[in-house]
């Protein structure tokens, strides 16, 4: 088979798998939340309620595709698409296994950071174009939050880059053959994890939505399929952050010999997805100013320190 066709097929396969996972996560999250809250969650539609997702999809497809009269129509339509597109683009650089990946970029991490910065536009534009004060407030918070956390999220990754000596994701995974970067880069991991949660605006850092204050934040005015895109985008975001944590700190596809690499990758990724869900089940949302001061006053100095120390040690041993 032609190399190009195969590559296209792999890329397409990844896309399908990702979307399936994202949809499945909706079910998974509801079941897990229920479990942690001593409930059942959706268990009526199909075996274990698995078809609940289908039912929800059908519902969302058949909802009226409504754009408020006061909204900026073009931007309003583009915003949710942007979220999903940027996240899916980010997945391009994730090495599921040495064979299964879309593109092996030398500037992998940079590409991811660039894409996630673009993702902020989706929230800002969605909130702004809704022409609703709650949406706008959500968007402003989103802009501040995502731009702030972007800074030290990038910083925290620099330790990994220094240790691996490359921005290429495959190289980073291979560099962990001896030891996962979680051990030398623990602080980096913690900062990246927190930053990741904020970047995916997941609970407890979902102040862009903050339903108790802002109705539904930046997507208050969205409904139907466009809301669905935001919704799926959120789960794709979780998957992306989990996949990156796996890749950058937990040795990606590496594992013991008796299982195929892709399995290891998925196992680790799902573990982190569950941690994300556990966070939602357990932690309350901080205040907006607390979030910002945590970022700028603690995480940023900490990430700079981590970079400094890592750099110093690496230099020392060279």
């Amino acid at each position: 088979m032609n190399e190009g066709v195969l590559h296209t097929l792999v890329a397409f396969g990844i896309l399908v798998v990702l979307l399936t996972i994202a949809a499945g996560l909706i079910w998974l999250e509801r079941r897990l939340l229920a479990l942690w809250q001593d409930r059942y969650g959706p268990n009526r539609v199909g075996p274990f309620g698995l078809f609940q997702v289908m039912a929800d999809m059908i519902k969302i497809f058949f909802k009226e595709d409504w754009i408020p009269g006061f909204a900026d129509k073009k931007v309003f339509v583009i915003a949710p698409a942007m979220l999903v597109i940027t996240i899916l683009m980010s997945f391009a650089i994730v090495p599921f296994t040495p064979e299964i990946m879309v593109v092996d970029l030398n500037i992998g991490i940079l590409f991811f950071l660039a894409m996630s910065s673009l993702g902020a536009y989706s929230v800002v534009l969605g909130g702004w174009s809704s022409n609703n004060k709650y949406s706008l407030l959500g968007a402003i918070r989103g802009a501040a939050q995502m731009i702030s956390y972007e800074v030290f999220m990038g910083m925290s990754l620099m330790g990994v880059v220094i240790m691996a000596g490359s921005l290429n994701m495959t190289d980073i995974v291979i560099a962990q053959k001896k030891m996962w970067f979680i051990i030398p880069q623990f602080i980096g991991f913690v900062i990246f994890f927190i930053g990741g949660v904020a970047e995916a605006h997941r609970l407890p850092f979902d102040i862009v939505e903050a339903e108790s204050e802002l109705i539904a934040g930046y997507h208050s005015e969205y409904s139907g399929l466009k809301f669905g895109l935001f919704f799926v985008g959120e789960y794709l975001g979780i998957t992306l952050i989990s996949a990156l944590i796996t890749t950058l700190f937990f040795g990606g596809w590496l594992g013991f010999g008796f299982l195929p690499p892709v399995f290891w990758f998925l196992l680790k990724t799902f573990a982190f997805i569950m941690v994300f869900i556990l966070l939602r089940a357990a932690l309350p949302r901080p205040r907006y100013d607390q979030l910002m001061s945590l970022g700028w006053k603690i995480l940023l100095p900490l990430s700079l320190l981590n970079l400094l120390v890592t750099g110093a040690i690496v230099l020392y041993f060279q």
Binding site: W36, Y40, L278, L279, A282
Partner: peptide
Amino acid sequence: SNLRSLWIVFLHLFRKRETVEY
């Protein structure tokens, strides 16, 4: 305390469910 609440919530995995399946 955040970590503790994470742990406590996690432990609920092993609790009996309250739901009455109506």
